[in-house]
Design a protein around this nucleic acid. Structure first.
Lengths: 154, 154
DNA sequence: GGCGTTTAGTTCAGCGCGAAACCATTCAGT
DNA sequence: ACTGAATGGTTTCGCGCTGAACTAAACGCC
């Protein structure tokens, strides 16, 4: 009844599972060592830095990071403590809050980015041929089309 | 000075990063719903079930899961509470402990496996062509050769 | 044999996260 | 205008994990 994995499938799945876990761990360690923050926080700073006015609604941050509101709330708290982000009341909807990237936050991001990019290069990009990189993108896109929830994350 | 990512690299990296995170999350949710345990615990049961006498040293478990001793210690505690694993003193080295998969543990694993395999199929294997699956394995292997620490996990 | 060093494993404090309960504001239907 | 439902965020609690400090047993070397 159960369609078990054959040898090829087994090997591919195990290799992929382990590789993506190790890569994630490694990038996390590098970023933590270099920037004192986890990748998820870094991602928030990147999003804010690319947004108009360096500002985003909490719910937008949750949406674009495919995560739950509570995570954003926790994260923005921590980033606020570090002085990298500040909250502002939302004018047109008094339930909402805006997260604003501060100058210090932008500086921290700029100081960190080179090391992070170098890490991504070292442990992923530069290991693969351009052809493999294209294959990886195609494969990832297939997974994303399947996995992304229609309305984004809640 | 910094070699920034070009567009192709950027897209590949972002797609891969997000896809592997979403896949991990999804498999975790499925497994948690179906078996009441996180994937990491499941992995331990699998390892034990394949080991001679359904038995392994704590340090071996740590080695093969590429993880730290403290994680194994916590995990085996929890699995012991559930009655799926029990500890036995190691005879030839009285510092060490053996983790033994109980009959209940094996039963729990067997009851869970089909749903887990179905989940892996649904969200990964069956989405890809055999060609893509082979590419994914090759790519993963490149990463593993680079990332695996010579002596296993520390 | 005795003593410092290494090794196996546990414990404790703290982190990032999710689920669920909760509060405040806004919206929809009448 | 009023009331019930939906929405935006926060808070509390518990989980799995890590790093560091710690205990106990084994090893190396004289």
């Amino acid at each position: 009844m159960t369609r078990w994995l054959n040898d090829d499938e087994q090997r591919a799945w195990r290799a992929f599972g382990l590789a993506s876990r190790l890569l994630t761990d490694r990038l996390e360690r590098d970023l933590l060592a270099g920037a004192g923050m986890p990748p998820t926080y870094y991602e928030l700073l990147v999003l804010l830095s690319e947004a108009p006015e360096r500002t985003m609604r909490m719910s937008e941050l949750a949406h674009w990071t495919n995560s739950k509101p509570s995570r954003i709330s926790h994260a923005v708290n921590k980033l606020e403590e570090k002085g990298w982000v500040r909250r502002e009341h939302c004018v047109d909807d008094r339930r909402g809050w805006l997260a604003v990237l501060t100058d210090d936050g932008l500086a921290a991001l700029r100081a960190t980015a080179p090391r992070h990019v170098a890490s991504v290069r070292e442990h992923l990009i530069d290991l693969l041929t351009p052809e493999q990189l294209r294959q990886l993108e195609d494969i990832s896109q297939v997974l994303l089309d399947h996995l992304i929830e229609p309305g984004g994350a809640q």
